[in-house]
Design a protein around this nucleic acid. Structure first.
Lengths: 336, 336
DNA sequence: ACGGTCTGTCGAACCGGTTGGACGGAGAGC
DNA sequence: GCTCTCCGTCCAACCGGTTCGACAGACCGT
């Protein structure tokens, strides 16, 4: 069931079948009809490997994810599914590759083996070796998040600094004086994880502008850590009346800690931050927070990548998204 | 930078380079040394498409996921990451393809285009057209979950019926008389989604054995539905003192409903079921529940698939996992 | 000295597509 | 009636690997 077989049965040459399929040269309607008939009858579809070899492109993208050991957050997971969907609408397949840890072999295989036409890189660090590797290999890529000094590169990101600033201003408007930022884990911060660093910067900047007393803490990405973290905050800084967070995984722990401390949200304590809408809505009460627009980011990333593959010489483009903050019910006026 | 270039620089023929790389025929140590030198120097790696074409296999698996629109549950997501990791340890790549909805083109592309050596199918329905399609195409595949009458097929599943039965016995042991099963959405049940149907069967069976009054309700996969669902239960059957569930997405809503009703868990009400450990631990209080062993299932599925690819004639194998129930703190003796 | 095995290497065919150049025939222009 | 296009088709080369059969030379036993 290859192209030669189709050609034989339709009584034409292999190239004619190819042209009938691709439309790259005219084929008489009568011939086209016969060819399509045979194709339908046999359920033929060109062999992807052969086509990739001949065309020099695989019609496949790679999405590089962090290893499973470091659990994916809800935002990231929504993103993976959305990338797959966005790629599917353009008839592209998505190869999922882990990276980091012991998985450098997978990454290397993708990069040097010409397995894919382009790469989407998640979880970018401010200084990321994979970026260099891809540049050196001359493989088109788009990063989710951007490196510290994104010279000429393609990326999509959420403006964490701006969003966190807005959260702080929102809390200041409500009269809060003492606020805390519950960041991601200190390992991530130490590794130079952009969203964590930029959130922290935006937090301190806005707090400074509004004359608030600002504290920041790191918190491992799990419920238990969220609980411990919040209790630490209460004991060290009992005057704090509001928290801003980007740590989704810690939320259940925060919830439990608030309950245990007998604090009512938003009467006694306010919470906001950048949180996947699904989780924000699952919180009790629903969180007033900036929703990370995973689908839009995915669509943008795929489009940028496709553009770059089509014209590798094009001048790099990027997108910095700043979604609105959804006012739900986890923030309220400070009470004393 | 292809194999011919390497051969030229090392002063040998292309086939010798190929044999040096694959080890399928002996090559003198001196020749091998020269070849490896050139390869290291140029950073050569065989073109994956060419190799796939020649060998007739792609060293790639496909993981078919439900469309993003139907949001993946936590269990499913952990499973995706684990499959990728398990495949990576065998130097296999994973192609992620959506299916259902408008994505049949993607699925067709995978199946007929010989893009992959085998397929892992998630979210199997009791009577699933994709299974037929794969059988007809003669493509090796493993299903997560099994069809109603799995003749000779390869699959991995969790024994929902047995686990739910154990949950019911556990509640009966604690003295509960009136129990309810909070199932997945009625669309899924109507579509013939195995875990939902088997849970229901196991629930009723065990309740019958122990003489309990058993009710079952369907609940859409989202927090709001969980809340509404629980309030419906309380108003229709106020005598119910314990719930069993497999609906992870509804948990936050359940939590909120319990809180709103002023019910303390486990003093006033007990909850158990089959729930991803991550979510079970995030609940307040932590749920006594059966943890779905996503990593183990993933590893098993990949291994079975690899085995099947190596020997398509082998007699099908399968695995029905029955993980232990983790005793946390969401169940207690019935009080009256 | 001779046939036989064994080792290392090479040439050529093959996997299944795409694509550029050539070519035959029909129709148009003169 | 003759050339000139243009349309539709075919042939052959190519993409970059793998693998089979052949073969030269070293080594063995007799």
């Amino acid at each position: 069931m290859n192209i030669g077989e189709i050609a034989k049965r339709a009584g034409v040459s292999r190239s004619t079948v190819s042209y009938a399929l691709s439309g790259k040269r005219p084929v008489s309607t009568e011939t086209a009809r016969r060819i399509n008939e045979v194709i339908d009858e046999l359920g033929y579809r060109p062999n992807a490997s052969a086509r990739a070899l001949a065309e020099g492109r695989t019609r496949t993208l790679s999405l590089v994810i962090p290893p499973a050991s470091r659990r994916l957050t809800d935002v990231q997971l929504g993103f993976v599914a959305s990338v797959v969907e966005a790629a599917a609408t353009q008839d592209l397949d998505v190869l999922l590759s882990p990276s980091g840890g012991d998985h450098d072999r997978s990454f290397e295989r993708i990069v040097t083996g010409r397995r894919v036409d382009g790469v989407i890189l998640m979880e970018i660090l401010l200084d990321d070796p994979r970026v260099e590797r891809l540049e050196q290999a001359g493989l088109p890529f788009v990063t989710i998040g951007h490196v510290e000094h994104p010279g000429a590169s393609w990326w999509v990101d959420v403006d964490y600094a701006a969003l966190i600033r807005r959260c702080v201003h929102h809390l200041a408007d409500l009269g809060h004086q003492d606020v805390v930022l519950i960041n991601r884990s200190d390992e991530l911060v130490a590794a130079g994880y952009g969203p964590a660093l930029r959130s922290s910067a935006g937090f301190l900047e806005a707090a400074g502008e509004r004359g608030l007393t600002a504290r920041t803490v790191c918190c491992a990405d799990e419920p238990a850590a969220g609980l411990a973290c919040f209790e630490g905050i209460r004991s060290r800084w009992p005057e704090v009346t509001a928290a801003v967070t980007i740590n989704e995984a810690a939320l259940p722990g925060l919830q439990r800690a608030l309950h245990r401390a007998g604090l009512d949200v938003p009467r006694d304590f306010s919470i906001t931050g950048v949180i996947a809408s699904r989780l924000a809505e699952g919180f009790h009460p629903p969180l007033t927070a900036a929703d990370v627009p995973a689908e839009e980011m995915a669509r943008l990333a795929v489009n940028l990548l496709v553009e770059q593959i089509a014209d590798p010489g094009a001048t790099p483009r990027n997108a910095l998204l700043e979604p609105a903050i959804s006012l739900r019910s986890s923030t309220g006026a400070r009470r004393r």
